[in-house]
Computed example of a mutant assay.
Amino acid sequence: MSALIYLEGRELSFFYGDERIVFLRLDRPKASGKVQIKVYPDCRVVASAPEDADSETVLSAVKKRGRWIYEQLRDFRKQLEFTTPRQYISGESHYYLGKQYLLKVIEAPKQIQGVKLLRGKLEVSVRTKSTEKVKELLTDWYKARAKETFAKRLDAMLEQALWVEARPPLRILTMQTQWGSCSSNGRITLNPHLVKAPRECIDYVILHELCHLAEHNHSKRFYRLMSQVMPHWQQTKVRLDGMAAVILNA
């Protein structure tokens, strides 16, 4: 879990049945090991490989996962069919901590502009109705809630992460393809969109990054540690991944 948007790489492709699947090949400097393949909710396929691996080796590795990639793309495309662009008008449904809330936009020229969570609704007060202003206010509100919520959940998860000696620095940063990341110097970065997911999903992402403080790669030891602190993390991951298309576009 790292990086914002993959801007550099080489496009390669292969056929699975009648479908041509295009993927982006990224180099991992000074890395060894297997080719890592990810399919993102926006249907981008990325293969991360050691920089000295030739294209044929990478292509072969990706082809072997052809069926899995095809099924991932199929599932994400189904989700995207039901995802309509946000208009930020009254009546829309928006997520917060796993629950859906109706958006209510109030035009009040003399009131302070802002967002309140009241009686199952997200009420946004604006001086004049503007899609961009409503979006801006909601974005700021989500970031503020994320900062507060993530700090509390980090403290709670640290009680389980006995290998962590000191509370790691926490940063909130909007990312297009990741829920979170852990830098080489131990800073944890979390996506504010994650605050729209259920608390269990937030805890999963935080624990995932805390495990990276002990194991920097997705090794067997990493997953063993993850299973020790959250035995059912796979189910939680599936739940979060299933909500990705809706949450990231909300």
Rank of each mutant, 00 (worst) to 15 (best):
V164L: 05
M175I: 11
I202P: 05
I206L: 11
V205R: 02
K196M: 11
L162H: 08
R167P: 15
L158I: 02
L158S: 00
V195A: 00
I206D: 05
M175R: 11
D155G: 08
Q176V: 07
H193L: 14
N185S: 14
M157Q: 06
A166Q: 15
A166H: 13
P169I: 02
T189M: 08
P168C: 05
Q176Y: 11
C182V: 06
H193Y: 12
I172P: 09
A166T: 15
C201F: 03
K196H: 04
V195W: 02
M157H: 00
S184E: 11
I202L: 06
E200L: 07
S181F: 03
G180Y: 03
T177G: 14
R187I: 05
L162P: 01
T177W: 14
L170G: 11
V164P: 09
T189C: 12
C182Q: 11
R153Q: 12
L173K: 15
E165H: 14
L170V: 10
E200D: 01
V164Y: 09
L158R: 00
Q160F: 05
R187T: 14
E165A: 14
N191S: 03
V164A: 13
C182H: 11
L170H: 13
R187F: 10
E159L: 03
I206M: 08
R153Y: 09
L194P: 09
L162M: 04
I188N: 03
Y204N: 04
M157K: 07
D155R: 01
I206G: 05
P192M: 07
R153G: 12
T174M: 12
I188Y: 04
K196R: 13
A166F: 14
Q178R: 15
N191C: 06
D203E: 10
T174R: 15
V195L: 00
D203T: 04
P198V: 07
L170A: 09
A197M: 10
Y204T: 06
L158E: 01
P168F: 05
M175E: 08
N185E: 09
D155Y: 05
L154I: 02
I188L: 12
D203R: 01
D155F: 04
P198A: 12
V205Y: 02
T189E: 03
P192S: 08
V164S: 11
G180N: 07
I188G: 07
M157D: 06
Q178G: 13
S183F: 10
P198R: 02
P198C: 08
L194A: 13
S181R: 08
H193I: 05
L190F: 10
T177K: 15
P192C: 10
Y204E: 08
S184L: 06
C182S: 07
T177M: 15
A161F: 09
D203I: 00
V195G: 02
